[in-house]
């Protein structure tokens, strides 16, 4: 490998800025869709199982098991089912996001104090109304934290999606790794990695804002 050529990297960025932006956009999009799906599914599962010890451990354990499967293996296993491209990547990322979201939903819903539950019930709110109008809003900051953890997780894992032809910055990293020795190999790999890290930081900052604006003032510390 030759020495690191910084002006070369800058030149590479100048020439490839459109590609880089497209890939960043794709990366963000695939992560966002996966998080949205996982939030809907995860919160839904959490709402269903939070009060049942069996359902709860079943849901959390299954999601935990999924997370232990190496990402490469999981993505590869999906090729025969869903082919290549966006779909296996999306499904993989959604599955990986489930654990933090389900777990935090369950924890958040269960954290509501018995006194609040009793006063809600005592006022004539049906169990469903207690769940949706009292417990869910109170658990919300905890749930958003789960989504935030999932976001950090999936922004990294999404890069692996390129292995199954998925979108995003992984394409750049893989291109670099597969052409080691060539002139731009290092530039590709480095740029892809750097962008993933920056994206992760930006998204994390974004979640601070999301938490702030979607949480009741009464719950903020």
């Amino acid at each position: 490998m030759t020495g690191f050529d910084f002006p070369g990297l800058l030149a590479f960025w100048g020439k490839r800025s459109d590609d880089i932006l497209t890939l960043v956009g794709e990366h963000l999009l695939v992560v966002a869709i996966a998080l949205l799906l996982a939030t809907v599914i995860g919160v839904g599962v959490g709402l269903l199982v939070w009060n049942s010890p069996v359902g709860r451990s079943l849901a959390v354990t299954s999601a935990a098991v999924i997370l232990t499967i190496p990402s490469l293996a999981l993505l590869a296993a999906m090729i025969p089912l869903f082919g290549l491209g966006w779909v296996p990547t999306l499904i993989g990322l959604t599955l990986y996001s489930l654990l933090p979201i389900i777990r935090n939903t369950v924890v958040g819903l269960r954290e509501v104090s018995p006194a609040i539950m009793e006063s809600a019930t005592g006022m004539g709110l049906a169990p469903g109304a207690v769940l949706l109008r009292i417990q869910l809003p109170m658990a919300w900051p905890v749930i958003v934290t789960g989504v935030r953890v999932a976001a950090q997780l999936t922004i990294g894992i999404a890069a692996i999606g390129a292995y199954v032809g998925g979108p995003g910055l992984g394409q750049m990293i893989f291109q670099g790794l597969s052409s080691l020795g060539s002139k731009n190999a290092l530039n590709y790999a480095l740029t892809g990695t750097l962008c993933v890290i920056i994206l992760a930081l930006i998204v994390d900052g974004l979640f601070t804002l999301i938490t702030r604006y979607t949480t009741s003032k009464g719950l903020r510390a």
């Binding site: 009292i134 109170m138 719950l219």
Partner: peptide, 18 residues
Amino acid sequence: LRRHIGYVIQQIGLFPHM
């Protein structure tokens, strides 16, 4: 029934998000 019986408990139980 409960909507027509006022209920106050020691821990008050106000809803913090409201």
